[in-house]
Amino acid sequence: MAGSQSDDEKGTAQRVKDFAYEKTPEKFKNASDFQIRLRTGTVYVIICIASILAGDVPTMLFLAATAGICSAEFFYMLRSDAKMPNEWIGVVGAAYLPIAAFFFGLRGIVAGALLLMLALTLWYVFWSRARMQDVGVSLFGALYTGMQMACIMLVRTAFPGTDGGLLVLLLFASIWANDAFAYLVGRKFGKHKLAPRTSPNKSWEGFFGGLAGGVAVWFLVGQIPSVHIDPLQTFVLGAACGLAGVLGDLCESRIKRSVGFKDSGTMMPGHGGLFDRCDSLMTTATAAFVLLVLFGCINPVL
């Protein structure tokens, strides 16, 4: 009886797939990898732009959801490496940090990180199967995704009106430009491997091409009325963010290779998981926030 029910369910699922395929326009059938990647990337860009320009609250919700999903993908990968992270505490903690940044600024992030550490400490003390390495993975995953997404929230709320949104969009655009230029230059001229063991497809030629593209975008920051920054600081900001983005990309590549994963997930066809798409964004956001504070563009208050 159970086997028959299972066969019926499979048959129903197949009929649904066949019906959906028949109703799909011809130009969308049998799409190439590039077409799939382009369509998925377009949807992602539209969601990013719409959320950020809609205001602080939509930005907060977008960042919280992104942090939660990225941390969940991180924990899923680490479980295959004989780790047992506490996904519930980690995902909730990661998603909470951008929310805390919106409501309470840096104080909220500090308090959120301390609450996260307290929750994991209680879990470790009262659940005998928890190991210290599991606590470390849970804490790192939540902070790596959530705290760095919270930096974007701090940048968004640091400037009035749409200026904060424009600055965050330029942050995103610099990463997209870096990726695009790195891909195009690396494909055309790439001969020298950047990190053959960690990410064999990256080249030094693509690295410098991507860095130039990202720096070019950052020079638009000076055109935002509320952001007072000189050209030299803009160049330093662009170069540092470009380097940070590459570091984030290589860090995620190292994580995936260490646990035997090609992609962090399947949420974004053609790209892998959301963590794959946001690896450079996280470290770039942290570098941008720190430098904007050092340059006096942002005055964070605890």
Rank of each mutant, 00 (worst) to 15 (best):
T66V: 15
K23V: 14
F34Q: 09
F219C: 04
Y96C: 09
L211T: 02
L169A: 00
H228D: 06
V155N: 01
K17M: 09
I36L: 10
V135P: 08
V16H: 04
T59I: 12
A101D: 00
A240S: 09
G248W: 07
F207Y: 12
V217C: 03
S199G: 00
D81S: 15
G190E: 00
A216K: 10
K188N: 04
H192N: 14
C70D: 02
F295E: 01
A2V: 11
T145L: 11
V259H: 09
S226N: 03
M84K: 15
Y96Q: 10
K17E: 05
M1Y: 14
A31W: 07
C278W: 12
T59K: 13
A239K: 11
Y144G: 01
G210Q: 05
D56I: 10
N86F: 03
F34R: 13
S71H: 15
F103T: 12
E9L: 13
V290F: 08
A158G: 02
L78K: 14
M149F: 13
P200A: 00
S264T: 09
K188A: 05
K256N: 03
C278P: 06
L114R: 12
D134W: 12
T121E: 06
P58M: 08
E9K: 14
E9W: 11
K191L: 11
I46R: 10
P160H: 08
F295G: 01
A65P: 14
I224C: 01
C297N: 06
L302G: 03
S80Q: 14
V236E: 01
Q35V: 15
L78S: 03
G273R: 11
A95N: 03
N86L: 10
W204I: 15
S51I: 06
A150Y: 00
K17L: 10
L154H: 03
L114V: 13
L220E: 03
M147Q: 07
A31V: 12
N86P: 06
G93T: 00
A64T: 05
G165P: 04
L291D: 00
S226L: 08
V290I: 13
A54D: 03
L170A: 01
I229W: 05
C297I: 08
Q133F: 11
L143N: 02
A158V: 06
G68R: 03
T24E: 07
M282H: 10
G3N: 07
V168A: 03
C48Q: 12
S258P: 08
V16M: 06
P25N: 09
A288G: 01
K188C: 07
K193E: 05
V110M: 10
V135S: 04
F159Q: 04
D18W: 10
G3W: 06
L220D: 02
Y183Q: 13
V43T: 00
